[in-house]
């Protein structure tokens, strides 16, 4: 058997990688479920039921998908321009911090203004967090993979300090957590009585907006050109440095929104476990979506469903919910492999 490159992949072939990767992921998960003593079909059934089996489950899945849509978009935007933003985690926390700073009583505004202010501020600080590494990259050629990744740890320690110090809730009985947001700073539920907040709708709007930017605007055209061939882009007069900086602002802003949405829509206050790695999981989401903004929504729902479903599955079947982490990790690995393989045709001699 031989591999041969394909010059012009068909549409079917381009959609193939995610399908292949997800299929392979389920095979691995089935094996692991069997090792853990469960029946794989029962386990998958329980995961499915846990994720979509009831109104509550569905809303839980949508809520869990919300931050992943934001971080997935942040990564997709950056990666498309070949800006390797691994720091969505820090940008998310930055958005959460500013939301808490503005939304716990320091300001008193009517709810719409308050929410708009918090959201925009979260985008701004998220953007600024990524602007630093982007400037280091364009000015000095510093590798942004290193700077954005390390900034995650630095920023998390900074948040830890804030929660032990300036932002610590005086009524929190000593726990490292912030005060609660005032009601005007809380994102309301989309439908009264259902546990789904407006953050989800905002995430969908963001996905459509990014898609429109990518395909319809000069900025999207510039970002794609710079990502595909920076040398040709520069020769044609596209301001490459400015485009990279704009990309960084957009990417960081989207990740900042994730923090705003989580604090304002779901948690109501800031703790150190606000994000169980949404910034990193966003990379998986973006890759599964092949960096397509609308695909990000689908991929985020898939990933969220696995996590939510695995949680309830583990209670019912006794198979550890770590299965979800493994599925996620293998989905990413298989995806990278599948992208590679679908660029080639397998030939039998």
């Amino acid at each position: 058997m031989r591999l041969e490159p394909i010059a012009a992949p068909s549409v079917g072939r381009r959609v193939l990688p995610p399908a292949l990767a997800i299929g392979a992921t389920f095979v691995v998960a089935a094996l692991l479920a069997m090792i853990a003593g469960g029946n794989p079909f029962a386990v998958f059934g329980l995961i499915l039921k846990g994720a979509f089996g009831s109104k509550f489950a569905i809303l839980e899945t949508l809520n869990s998908a919300t931050p992943l849509i934001f971080t997935g978009l942040a990564i997709a935007v950056a990666f498309r321009a070949k800006l390797w933003n691994i720091g969505a985690e820090a940008q998310l926390y930055a958005g959460a911090v500013i939301t808490v700073v503005l939304g716990t009583g320091a300001l008193s505004l009517p709810a719409p203004l308050m929410l708009a202010l918090c959201g925009l501020a979260a985008m701004l600080v998220g953007a600024l967090i990524l602007l630093g590494p982007a400037l280091l990259k364009t000015r000095l050629g510093v590798d942004e993979v290193v700077t954005t990744l390390l900034l995650n740890f630095i920023f998390l320690l900074f948040v830890s300090y804030l929660l032990e110090g300036p932002l610590k809730d005086p009524m929190g009985m000593g726990w490292p957590k912030s005060a609660r947001l005032i009601p005007e700073a809380r994102l309301p539920r989309i439908v009264e009585g259902l546990r789904l907040h407006w953050g989800f709708a905002l995430a969908l709007i963001a996905a459509v907006a990014v898609w429109v930017i990518n395909t319809r605007t000069t900025l999207g055209y510039e970002m794609r050109a710079v990502g595909q061939n920076a040398e040709a882009a520069a020769f044609a007069g596209i301001p490459v440095t400015r485009v990279i900086l704009k990309t960084a602002l957009l990417s960081g802003g989207l990740a900042g929104l994730a923090g705003f949405s989580e604090v304002s829509g779901l948690k109501g206050s800031l703790t150190l476990d606000l994000s169980p790695g949404f910034g990193y999981t966003g990379i998986v989401v973006a890759m599964l979506a092949l960096l397509h903004p609308l695909g990000v929504v689908v991929a985020a729902l898939f990933v969220a469903a696995i996590f939510v479903g695995a949680d309830s599955m583990s209670r019912a079947a006794g198979v550890p919910s770590y299965l979800a982490d493994i599925m996620l990790a293998s989905a990413l690995l298989f995806m990278v492999l599948a992208i590679l393989l679908t660029k080639f045709r397998v030939r039998r001699d």
Partner: peptide, 24 residues
């Protein structure tokens, strides 16, 4: 390497120098 972007289509390559002035 410098004249065209290989994975862009013909239209996208045609406007590479003028997108900002003529087609925006």
């Amino acid at each position: 390497k410098t004249g065209t972007i290989a994975d862009f289509d013909l239209t996208e390559n045609a406007i590479l120098e003028t997108y900002a002035t003529r087609f925006s």
